[in-house]
Design a binder for these strands. Structure first.
Lengths: 334, 334
DNA sequence: CTGAAAGCGCTTACAG
DNA sequence: CTGAAAGCGCTTACAG
């Protein structure tokens, strides 16, 4: 970074004062067009590079947004992170990434570090644990903070919560399987007691209650290996189950893998629906029916809201639910 | 960020000068233990938050590393990114993420933005295209830059290149399938002409040449859908192919999916080997044999090297190859 | 529309 | 081991 030209060098070269250069840098419309062009040319000539640390120090605002994710290796979150980052880049903001890896201690450490860097906003899909401490750190920093997908506590106006309408997704999945003729539908995966699990499940439960059918619930890790492992158990202990709604696509893909192994015909013997509609759903065998949370729109809308909040101070609604959609494929029948 | 206490407030509270506070902040050992403790206590008392923008401005060095990835949605890169970020965090560095999404124009824009932020180093798995321009921008910034997995050009001492030993991986895969009794082994996927494809393929080609067998090469996208689509063609046009080495696991998982659909028994009729050993390999049906690039070690080593370079100026070797290992699973036979 | 001056919160020599 | 002073490269009022 040393020896980089400064706005003073640019000013000298363009024959204006450094204030004028600064105004050009900020896109201030009060600068005459010809001056603006001359300044831009001078910058190009001498290879000027904007020093954002100086700007941040003086202006109390950075163009950095902190993205804190509980499990970046889950493709659902990866897709969100990638799209979110690109959307911010389009708006001139950079993304500082932190994968808390379901470790609340690492999470608080990373958040503190991001605050020191002066991020203008946080988007966090939190790891559970140490909720009060984490919220206290975020609150003390007074940084606009949006919670996505998961929430660290009851509705809190300081930390608005943005998530897909999981409950409705659960309903859609259950209704679809009923319409496909399933007599007994199970719900598989998702850690018990977690809000996300509860929501996805309650859509399912309400449909079964309306149909007066007994639910079958097997909670657990949201992983392929869990889905794979539980399939045999499901077949053995609940032989009448002919439809299964999985907590997420990873679980569902595990089920599909086990069905291949066990010779169970998916889509006829057993109809399977996943959740999240990750890319893999299209290429599994059979292709997986899934509840899409429309991550591209969700990422874009999250980016817009945190940017508006960071720039104008406009706080988003405390709770917002984005629409979900059932994508029908062969795993749930024709 | 406004109204945060500064080192002056800390100094006042602790009854020392602000220089002393700064020395404590930097962990300078010349400060007396009791003073150090008093200063730390004062910081905690008044809720002091370190302002890294100010430090960066004055010291010409930030604790920010830029990570530029060509395709963050590919699980192979995601795992690398997640582990790399966590390793940096352990060393007190933050990661600014950029997903260039195989778009060289976006890539140069994002790199320029990261330079403005004063990153102390770059780790880049580049998107192809505009190579000269990209290297010129990086070179002009004089920022330590490590290329990983892919390289933007011929060996260049300004941008050392760190990658798994793909060629050896290709050899291991081919030798393994030969040992398993395969008579005709095909290579599937990977864009033609790309260095990574060439390397993975050349290990395969050299083994076939030694065995005096004709190769079968079908290059193309490194995706599940390509693997899935090409499987039918492979069976129809090359019915004697009894083993296939895939450019990466995504292609291989596509092949497995197609085999389920076509009723081809993987591991007997057709033996399949992937590349990268992503997590999904363990849970596919059948579990997928794959060449592991040992991403955890690779990420850790990459983090170490860029940190040493950024901090001490020690430039890593121009080219380094990390060891690979064949992980044998059911897809290639017992 | 442009210029001169002050100041953001640190680190860096340097003196003691 | 500690203190006083200068300065990093910007932005921000303010005057003209």
């Amino acid at each position: 970074m040393k020896d980089r030209p400064t706005i003073l060098d640019v000013a000298k070269r363009a024959g204006v004062s450094k204030s004028t250069v600064s105004l050009v840098l900020q896109g201030n419309p009060s600068v005459k067009e010809t001056t603006r062009v001359a300044v831009r040319q001078a910058m190009a000539d001498i290879g000027y590079v904007y020093n954002r640390s100086a700007a941040t120090l003086r202006s109390y605002s950075s163009d950095l947004i902190g993205l804190v994710i509980n499990d970046l290796r889950n493709p659902f979150f990866t897709e969100f992170a990638a799209l979110f980052q690109m959307e911010l880049a389009r708006n001139g903001f950079a993304t500082v990434l932190a994968n808390s890896d379901e470790d609340p201690q690492m999470q608080t450490q990373m958040i503190s570090s991001l605050i020191e860097h002066g991020v203008s906003g946080f988007v966090i899909s939190p790891s559970y644990g140490r909720e009060a401490e984490t919220l206290a750190i975020l609150g003390a920093s007074n940084t606009p903070t949006l919670q996505v997908f998961r929430s660290l506590g009851p509705s809190d106006q300081r930390f608005p919560f943005l998530a897909p309408d999981y409950l409705h997704g659960g309903r859609l999945a259950a209704e679809h399987l009923r319409e496909q003729g399933c007599k007994r539908v199970a719900f598989l995966g998702g850690l018990e007691g977690r809000a996300v699990t509860e929501e996805r499940m309650s859509g399912y439960l309400s449909v079964l209650a309306e149909a007066e059918v007994e639910p079958v619930v097997l909670t657990g890790q949201a992983t392929r290996s869990f889905g794979k492992a539980m399939t045999a158990r499901l077949r053995a202990e609940y032989p009448d189950v002919d439809g299964v709604i999985c907590f997420n696509d990873l679980v569902a893909l595990g089920v599909l893998s086990a069905c291949s192994e066990l010779g169970v015909s998916v889509g006829t013997d057993l109809r399977v629906v996943g959740f999240d509609d990750i890319e893999d759903c299209q290429d599994s065998f059979p292709p997986l029916t899934s509840v899409s949370c429309n991550i591209p729109d969700f990422a874009k809308s999250t980016a817009e809201q945190i940017l508006i909040w960071a720039k104008d101070g406009t706080v988003p609604p405390v709770i917002a639910r984005s629409p979900v959609e059932l994508i029908k494929r062969a795993s749930s029948g024709q």
